[in-house]
Design a protein around this nucleic acid. Sequence first.
DNA 1: CGTACGATCTGCT
DNA 2: GCAGATCGTACGA
Length: 189
Amino acid sequence: MKLPSSYYLDEDVVFIAKDLLGKLFLTNIEGALTGGIFTETEAYKGMEDRACHAFGGRRTKRNDALYEEGGISYVYLCYGLHYLFNIVTNSKDTPHAVLIRAIKPVIGIDTMIKRRKREKDLTAGPGSLSQALGINLSHNKLSLVGDKIWIEEGEKPAEILATPRIGVEYAKEDALLPYRFVVSSNKAI
DNA sequence: CGTACGATCTGCT
DNA sequence: GCAGATCGTACGA
């Protein structure tokens, strides 16, 4: 069951980031169906969040998708060679988003291996999972209730861990916020 | 117009 | 553990 567009309108992006864990992320790109279970996400909480591209109301060509109504994608190029995929949430002009950092490969694994040119760590980071799923800049601002990229209901994981986000040291005090969520497969931590 | 840099990944040491 | 890859975008002149 594809998640309805209303799911993405929730005002609490931190809740959504956590709630997405266990759900199924699917793409149908270049004739291949690929997908997996969300295992790692991060919330970016709009203009008030120093780590967010829309901090302080910053609005540019690149981050324009963030200001649209929730339920579309925000894809951008990072370090000149990785496409990072985000889910835009909340209402128009509230630039909230969830960065997908990792999924567990489930569907179309052979396609992912071809795209990644390796068999291990197919979707273990934000850049690599985009490559495995065939996501690039042309998939920016795409509806998540369309037929190219969408999300389906899944099983809620038993244990979820909240930690600070990765790679956002520049965000000062906001770098410490527990906005990163991971499925903890082993109980001992 | 020119320059600096990034929500990263990989392969080699 | 670390450096190099690689380029669209942001921002200042």
